[in-house]
Design a protein around this nucleic acid. Structure first.
Length: 444
RNA sequence: GACCCGGUAGCUCAGCUGGUAGAGCAACGGACUUUUAAUCCGUAGGUCGUGGGUUCGAAGCCCACCCGGGUCACCA
C-alpha cells in the first residue's frame, strides 16, 4: 500500500499515522516490537508529506478503525518542504472536516499542487469539470455532430469582438493571432458539407480578468446545417439539462443563494422587450442622446462617441443582467451588435440571435448564421472601417471566409457556450479561477 | 484601467491612540506501546510585501511601487 503521510500521532514506542491516496485515508500503526528498532527509528524521521509504502495485515483498533499494522515500510519520496496541511478529522461519511486550512487564495491558485494535496475534496470540482465535457461530447456525438480541431494560430482573428494575443510566426515572417473564437473555421466546414460539427477548445482574449473571465478559456462551438436559432435553443436546453443531471443528479442548482430551476420550460424574451421591461427605455424610439441620458440617470458617465452598440450594451448590463438567475433565452438582438448573424425574418433591424443567461451571467451565445455573402461582406467592411478608426475589438475583413460563403453555405444554426462558466454553474463555484486548475496570474 | 480591502513565523491569525514581535498548529528535543485535531514538558523560528519619508522611536502614520481578493467598466 502506498500513499502520502498526512497525519502523525507518535506515542513513544508506537505511532499512529494516516496515509492518503486518491481513494481516501487509512490509518497505519507502527509498533516497535513488530518492526524492530532500526525500522522504528525510520518512523520517527517521517514528515507530513512524505510518500510511503507499507506492508502489513489489517486489524481493527479498539475504537473499530480499520488499520494497517505495518510490518515493513519503505520511504518512496521525501518531502523537503512542509505541506501546508492543517489538522483534519474524517467524518463518518469519509469526508474531511478541516480544523485549519490553506486559505490564501494566491497560494491556492499559484501552487495548485499544494492546494490539491492539502484539500483532496477540491479535486471533485475538476472531476465534475471533466464530467461536463464528457457529457457534452456524448450528447453531441449521439446527435451526429463531428468533433474537429481548427487552427489556434490564425493569420486573421474573427468570430467575436475581442482584442487578440499576437505572436510571431518565424518561418512565415508574419504576425499571427491566437484565436478569439472558432466560429469562422467551423462555418467553412459547414460550407464543405460537414453538416453537424463542433469543437471544444481554448480561446484567447487579451482583456481583463475577473471572476467571470480568464484570458484563456474553454469554449464549445457547434453548428448544424438547416437549423435556425430556435433549433439551437432546443439543443442547448436539452444539453445543459443533461449535463446538470449527469453531474449533480438533479435539475435544481444554486446561484447566489437562490435556487435555479432548470426543469420547467426556459423563458424566451426579446432583447428589446426585456430592456424596456427592466429599464423603461424603448430601444426602438430612443436615440443615442436618450440612451446616454438613461445611463446618466443610473450613475454612469457614458461616452457617446463609443457608439450606439456600446450604449445599448451598458444599459443592458446595468438594468437587465443582474436579474437573470433563472434560465432565460434573450432573443432578437439589435442587428448592429451582431455582425455574423442573420437578420430576423420580418424585422431586419433585429438579428436572429439569442444569449442564454443562467445564474446571473451569460452562458451561451447563438444565432442563425448569416449565409448571404454580399450582406456578410458589407457588415465585415463596416467592422473593418471601425477597426481602421481604432476600435481594436472590431472584426477584420476575412476574404477567405467570404470566398467560402460565396461557394454557398446552407442556412445554419450555431452556438458558442462557455465551458468554464457551465462548470461554475454545476459546481456552484463563484469564481472562474476555481474551475480552472491554473488560472492566469501575474508572474511572481 | 478606477475605487475598496488585504500582505506579520511553514499554515491560520492576534498585535489598542506609534514605545521596539505574539498565540495555536507544523518543526526540533524530551516523556508516553490502541491514538483519532492524541496529550504533557521544553526549544528554535520573523529584513512585519518592497523602497523612501515623518519621528527620539514605525508592523501601525505619509508617499510610491509589487502581489492578491472584491466592486465597477468591457469581452464568454
Amino acid at each position: 500500500m502506498a500513499g502520502r503521510v498526512v497525519a502523525m500521532r507518535p506515542h513513544g514506542k508506537s505511532t499512529f499515522a494516516q496515509l492518503a491516496d486518491p481513494s481516501g485515508r487509512i490509518q497505519l500503526y507502527f509498533k516497535q516490537d513488530q518492526l524492530g528498532e532500526p525500522a522504528y527509528e525510520q518512523v520517527a524521521l517521517l514528515d507530513l508529506g512524505d510518500h510511503l509504502g507499507v506492508v502489513g495485515p489489517l486489524f481493527r483498533t479498539r475504537t473499530g478503525e480499520v488499520t494497517v499494522r505495518v510490518d515493513r515500510l519503505e520511504l518512496l519520496a521525501k518531502a523537503l518542504r512542509p505541506l501546508p496541511l492543517g489538522k483534519s478529522a474524517e467524518r463518518e461519511d469519509g469526508s474531511l472536516e478541516h480544523h485549519s486550512v490553506l486559505a490564501d487564495p494566491e497560494v491556492r491558485y499559484r501552487q495548485r499542487y499544494a492546494d490539491l494535496a492539502v484539500h483532496p475534496e477540491r479535486r471533485a470540482v475538476f472531476e465534475q469539470r471533466a464530467a461536463v465535457i464528457r457529457t457534452i461530447r456524448e450528447f453531441l456525438d449521439a446527435r451526429g455532430f463531428l468533433e474537429v480541431d481548427t487552427p489556434i494560430l490564425q493569420p486573421l482573428y474573427g468570430g467575436a469582438s475581442a482584442r487578440p494575443f499576437v505572436t510571431r510566426y518565424q518561418a512565415l515572417d508574419a504576425d499571427f493571432y491566437l484565436r478569439i473564437a472558432d466560429e469562422l473555421y467551423l462555418k467553412r466546414l459547414i460550407v464543405g458539407g460537414i453538416e453537424r460539427v463542433y469543437e471544444i477548445g481554448r480561446d484567447f482574449r487579451n482583456e481583463g480578468m475577473d471572476r467571470l473571465h480568464n484570458p484563456e478559456f474553454t469554449m464549445l462551438e457547434c453548428y448544424a446545417a438547416y437549423w435556425d436559432y430556435t433549433d439551437v435553443m432546443e439543443l442547448v436546453e436539452a444539453m445543459v439539462r443533461q449535463v446538470v443531471r449527469e453531474v449533480t443528479g438533479g435539475t435544481t442548482l444554486h446561484a447566489r443563494g437562490k435556487a435555479v430551476d432548470l426543469a420547467g420550460a426556459w423563458r424566451r424574451v426579446g432583447f428589446v422587450e426585456l430592456v424596456k421591461e427592466q429599464s423603461g427605455v424603448d430601444l426602438r424610439r430612443a436615440n443615442d442622446a436618450a440612451l446616454a441620458a438613461a445611463l446618466k440617470e443610473r450613475g454612469l458617465e457614458p461616452d457617446v462617441t463609443l457608439g450606439r452598440p456600446r450604449l445599448i450594451d451598458q444599459l443592458f448590463g446595468l438594468t437587465v443582467e443582474p436579474h437573470l438567475e433563472q434560465p432565460t433565452f434573450i432573443v432578437d438582438y439589435p442587428i448592429e451588435v451582431s455582425p455574423l448573424a442573420k437578420p430576423k425574418r420580418g424585422d431586419p433591424t433585429l438579428a436572429e440571435r439569442f444569449e442564454l443567461f443562467i445564474g446571473g451571467y451569460e452562458l451561451a451565445n447563438a444565432f442563425s448564421e448569416l449565409n448571404d455573402p454580399d450582406d456578410q461582406r458589407a457588415r465585415l467592411e463596416a467592422q473593418g472601417a471601425r477597426r481602421a478608426a481604432g476600435d481594436e475589438e472590431a472584426q477584420a475583413v476575412d476574404e477567405d471566409y467570404l470566398r467560402a460563403l460565396e461557394y454557398g453555405m446552407p442556412p445554419t444554426g450555431g452556438l458558442g457556450l462557455g465551458i468554464d462558466r457551465l462548470t461554475m454553474l454545476v459546481t456552484g463555484e463563484r469564481s472562474i479561477r476555481d474551475v480552472i486548475l491554473f488560472p492566469a496570474l501575474r508572474p511572481e
